[in-house]
Amino acid sequence: MLELRLVQGSLLKKVLESIKELVTDANFDCSSTGFSLQAMDSSHVALVALLLRSEGFEHYRCDRNMSMGMNLNNMAKMLKCAGNDDIITIKADDGGDTVTFMFESPTQDKISDFEMKLMDIDSEHLGIPEAEYHAIVKMPSSEFARICRDLSSIGDTVVISVTKEGVKFSTKGDIGSANIVCRQNTSVDKPEEATVIDMNEPVSLTFALRYMNSFTKATPLSNTVSISLSNELPVVVEYKIAEMGYVRFYLAPKIEE
């Protein structure tokens, strides 16, 4: 038996909106640690890892580890029916082939339940070791989204370079080229508006903008984003989910053959 009650139901709605473009079907894993997911996009270029820790739920019951295969578009359709202020409860029976999403309005005068069919999904799970990165850039998530959107109107790829001068996002296309440099600015009024660059070594990597733009669908989840870079390794674009966990996107770089 599984029963997870999330008072801030809008978080789950936002999580689904952030990943459904990248991944079609995925297994949600439920254990005593929390509600999690790891899935690759269909081309196996990017990977998303989600964790919602059990402590972040008002009520968290998971009698035994469960993996529930869901079509993310269908799940998003159901969660769209929840109000932004609704409490969402996820329920499933051990060995059952459905999951139920229950929505309660804040005043408890409207209670809905939506039952969704589960599916069997063969998925590969990748082991991602904790790594030391050459550079970690933390910046406002809206600024990062703006940069990715702006650059994708010029080119298809972005070169992200971190030096002690700052972080540079560059692209080139048929009509021309563009460079956007963000310098560290820790003296802003609000910490979430700061750009903080933690660099051990300069790093420069090339990525497909299409994926970066897809990751920025997670912008509503967090005011800030952190971008972890090491030469020749996938970038990690992380959006923290307040007091609950994170959505992390891993993207393989384009590498000279």
Partner: peptide, 14 residues
């Protein structure tokens, strides 16, 4: 010319 790598080429399956 740069080629897109697969994410699977960086991590092992568990």
């Amino acid at each position: 010319n740069r080629n897109q790598k697969s994410i699977k080429s960086f991590y092992s399956t568990v």
